[in-house]
Design a protein around this nucleic acid. Structure first.
Lengths: 349, 349
DNA sequence: TCGCACAATGTTAGCGCTGTCATTTTTCAG
DNA sequence: CTGAAAAATGACAGCGCTAACATTGTGCGA
């Protein structure tokens, strides 16, 4: 036989402190202190509905005196709308990501949103679990890097119904909104540039497709143009994973030139690597672009400060983040935004 | 006269969909589908308490079929313990922060915590409001950069009762746990190094105390040693705020050398600036360290890949983040952890 | 066979807010 | 001065979950 009713409460009631309960001050405490109903306090704190100036004043004073900090967890649960936005990035060390992040963050912050981030470390499976984990915080949107995700990640996102913005890349099928530029096209333009300048014995130092999807797409575009011109990349050197990118570029170029001393140009998968290559040339008195031309990708500030600014392609990274965040919050239609890129001729080609 | 009771519910009850309610599937739905009580589902999903293998299996299947994603907002509210950790950083572009962040993030993620981040942009007032905002998500801890905060920020943190870890710097008064190294001492060691190598006409290019508190502390230590040796910095050039750090370093050194052509060494407030200085020397055929010695701070990988590795001081940034995060979660006593630093002699001094 | 520790599961009261609606007070045109 | 619309405020049922407790089943030594 069940014995319903007549049971002690499941929790101990909060101790009835007065005035100084820093950790656990609730809206009800403020209401009591200001001698008003809870909903009035709620209205004042969220600037919604109409409240008389006197009451508002009294409530604000009470809240301040109690050092009240609203509990957004409770607020979110009650209102079913969260001011949380999930962000999953592949890495923080990367030179590109922080800028995109900064752009997005600026917009989100201004709109009162708080970013919840996860770092996937370029691992789609890790990304999937981060997405799941972040979704459990019921964010009102999600910012992702790139278009490559596991199937389950995709279905989780579709099922959740939250707005998703995929940043950086537009070469592929997006889930919802996509903001970025075409890496394939960037690769093409790079090849066209080098060919136009008369370079023919061109090598490649960088990531393979497996290591970096977007670098792979650039390489693909690059090769396509070469092929169209009856040319081919003479040789390539895929960067090993260990050490910094700059170091990888330096070593990579060294290895490549040992195999192919007669190269007249090298295409790097990004500016970090290219900078490493630049340092290698400096050290070995290889004249640039006389003996060897260098071409990168990203438009890093740093690579623009060398005695000879690096030839590269710059993408509007901050704008990308800003646009992505804006569209995330705006609630517009599904769309793909191509933010384009700019080829910087530089002095190394 | 009040009319209590007998009122329609304030919310519309969730539509009684079956099987495919992707967005709003709740624990109750799973319980119903698996024909068990809600608490049993909760137990299974959190691996707490004992549940028979068969029931567990049934529940997991039901959850999977319904694509159930737990609502941690509700969970947090109910359990009064959150798996959120707040992180307030001064900037993402900065080269140091991402590494510290990566270290911290790795530890937090492994423990199932989700970081909620805010970017203060080096503005203590902005930091204060970010702290307040983040506290409203009731995180179980907060990671901050540096020891300098507004009074109100400090009292908010003290009042909230959450664990606080301040990273990077240990020269000052901490709120709770502090993990970092002494910048004052780093400045001292830098000066000692340059003096020991016989440099006497030393200049400074970098941030003033106002622009970067920690750079200011390093400069202070540097000057103290100089003074103790009866020396003084010949001249200095504070970097303007615009443009990248590398560019600032290049321009700064140019300006400084125009004023003081006879300098034999320059102390930079960080490696980014020093790298800019290095590029300036390269471009103007100033031999290093023959004509001019350069010394930086941070131990950036990139500055180690130049033909002549930069003389600098390296701090264990990733370890700093890891340690900070570990202590945050560990619940140990208040303490200050000095992670130290390492002077890298390099080839520019 | 009984009784008791313990495993397995159900029941329910909140967690601290917000949204809806009810109620009371004020304002103001007619 | 009157009635109705508008402003101000209060009351309270959830939001989806967890923690505490209640309840029932199960194995096993006495």
């Amino acid at each position: 036989m069940k014995k319903t009713g007549n049971r002690k409460p499941g929790r101990k009631p909060a101790s009835a402190d007065q005035d100084n309960a820093p950790a656990g001050t609730t809206l009800a405490d403020v209401a009591r202190k200001a001698c008003v109903g809870e909903s009035t306090v709620s209205r004042v704190l969220r600037n919604r509905g109409s409240v008389s100036p006197l009451t508002r004043e009294r409530i604000l004073r009470a809240a301040a005196e109690l050092h009240y900090v609203p509990n957004r967890i409770a607020g979110t649960l009650a209102s079913m709308t969260s001011k949380l936005v999930g962000i999953v990035i592949p890495s923080v060390g990367n030179t590109v990501v922080p800028e995109v992040l900064a752009g997005a963050n600026a917009v989100l912050e201004d709109a009162g949103y708080q970013p919840v981030i996860g770092v996937s470390n370029y691992d789609p499976v890790r990304e999937e679990s981060l997405i799941e984990s972040i979704l459990s915080w019921r964010p009102s949107g999600l910012l992702l890097a790139g278009l490559e995700h596991t199937d389950r990640a995709r279905s989780l996102l579709k099922g959740s119904g939250v707005r998703v913005v995929e940043l950086i890349d537009i070469d592929g099928e997006g889930i919802d909104i996509v903001v970025g530029s075409s890496h394939r096209l960037a690769g093409r333009r790079s090849a066209e540039h080098l060919l136009a300048r008369g370079y023919r014995r061109i090598g490649y130092v960088g990531h393979g497709i497996r290591a970096d999807v977007r670098a792979g797409k650039r390489l693909e575009g690059f090769r396509a143009v070469m092929r169209e011109h009856g040319q081919a990349i003479v040789d390539h050197e895929f960067s090993s994973e260990s050490g910094s990118s700059v170091e990888a570029g330096r070593r990579g170029l060294a290895r490549l030139l040992k195999k192919q001393p007669s190269l007249d140009a090298v295409y790097f998968s990004n500016d970090d690597l290219a900078l490493g290559g630049y340092f290698h040339c400096l050290e070995n008195h290889i004249s640039i672009p006389g003996d060897l031309a260098l071409f990168g990708y990203n438009g890093l500030d740093m690579a623009h400060q060398t005695p000879q600014p690096l030839s590269t392609i710059r993408t509007p990274r901050t704008a990308m983040g800003r646009t992505g965040a804006k569209l995330l919050l705006a609630g517009g239609p599904v769309q793909v935004v191509d933010v384009g890129f700019e080829l910087i001729a530089g002095a190394t080609s």
